[in-house]
Nucleic acid binder design. Structure first.
Lengths: 173, 173, 173
DNA sequence: TCCGTTCTAGAATATTCGTCG
DNA sequence: GCGACGAATATTCTAGAACGG
């Protein structure tokens, strides 16, 4: 893994650029988490600078997605064990929680690693899959044909209409 | 389905609010599609008003996601059979394409839905029927294509013939 | 390998001929990548001089084909480890990515060409052939559709172009 | 065959909305 | 109410696929 997730990096940068915005958001005393002191100002001033929205709840959703936990009842303080002041190198260990359906990768791994031989059901399954594909492709073709049909109509209309106009023009020219 | 997808609705509204922005984007003549006449201005002025970005490519990605097709080689003109000027009620029929990461999910679904009891003959029988259907549908498609081919020929002939006449007309005008 | 790929060479030349076009595109500070500062001007002024188009997206596609990566979220900055200011001799190491049909197609191909796992039912074998034929026929259909699509495009372009000329003609007639 | 151009899709992250305990 | 999460849509970056020179 090369670099931290974009969201994590931006969050860290927001805290790095402290200045007088410490009254809006800052690391906690121990540097083991951060506190949003003023959700309103944070949402209106800082969020739009770093993200494509100004909703505090969306920000919270991202925090949860990356495994941050709210760790106080009376203020907006969040923690993640790998998110610490001064330890930028830990950031890349903070990943999305997405629990990967994992049915898939597992299947791929299995099919590629072990010889497919011997299991009769698999061949039938493959045929099913084959037919599934064919059906989908057929739908695609039908949609394409329909579109060209529309275009054709449009073209035909334009042309005939133009011919009419043109004849009138000739007469009056 | 209650109302159209957000993206579709916004797209329609952009075109509805024509005014003098028709030089940036507008319905085509027949109202069966739309043309982005100036991608630059469209990206800088209109996109940020309706979406959270100003990237033309992101806009294109959304169009493709909802099944729109580019239908001209020299302009940014797009069509979708359910996207027509004046037919707002059709918008809700425009939906996102299912991701179905292509072949795999289909395979998984098929294999999981079937009783794993190794009844190969039954599945083979089903596949036979499946193929039968596919063949019939394919014939349908071929007939359709033949029709459009004929129409196309006529159109092309008319147009070229007209161009010839027109040139003669100009000379003698 | 003798000389760099044409695209890579042109890209390098564009950056070499800096002048006052640095406001359109230039090397980054470190010379480890480049930034397109003004995609609009870049597309309209520079692309046509070096390539056969003026589409920014086509330019991006080429960059990706050769393994360049976008390395900033707020600007069009791209990097490739072998693309550095002053190191012209590295350019020939930048090559097109090989198709590498990924895991999937390979698996599918194998399954369709030869009966998997050796012992497969006769009926299944027939179905395999059936599907093979269906696939071929589908390709035929696609080719036909593509032909009509091309014709359609040309027709449409011709017609619209002609209408424009015609209007001009009328005014001056 | 390889490269370039175009159009569309895949895949990952981001944003929004709603629900559940 | 509240904190966490699922799911749908949106945005971004990269790749697939077809065609043509």
């Amino acid at each position: 893994m090369r670099c931290p997730a974009p969201f994590i990096l931006k969050l860290y940068e927001i805290l790095e650029e402290g200045h007088d915005r410490n009254q809006i958001v800052s690391w906690n005393k121990e540097g083991t988490g951060f506190v949003v002191w003023s959700p309103d100002e944070f949402s209106e001033l800082l969020l739009p600078r770093y993200f494509k929205h100004n909703n505090f709840s969306s920000f919270i959703r991202q925090l949860n997605t990356y495994g941050f936990k709210k760790c106080a009842t009376n203020r907006w303080e969040f923690q993640h064990c790998k998110f610490q002041n001064g330890n930028r190198h830990l950031l890349q260990e903070i990943t999305r929680k997405k629990c990967e359906p994992s049915v898939f990768p597992a299947f791929l791994k299995a099919s590629s690693s072990e010889p497919v031989g011997g299991v009769v059901d698999e061949s039938s399954d493959l045929l099913l899959q084959e037919n599934e594909n064919l059906r989908k492709e057929k739908l695609e073709l039908q949609m394409q044909i329909h579109q060209y049909k529309s275009l054709q109509m449009k073209l035909s209309d334009s042309l005939s209409q133009y011919l009419v106009n043109q004849n009138q023009f000739r007469r009056t020219c």
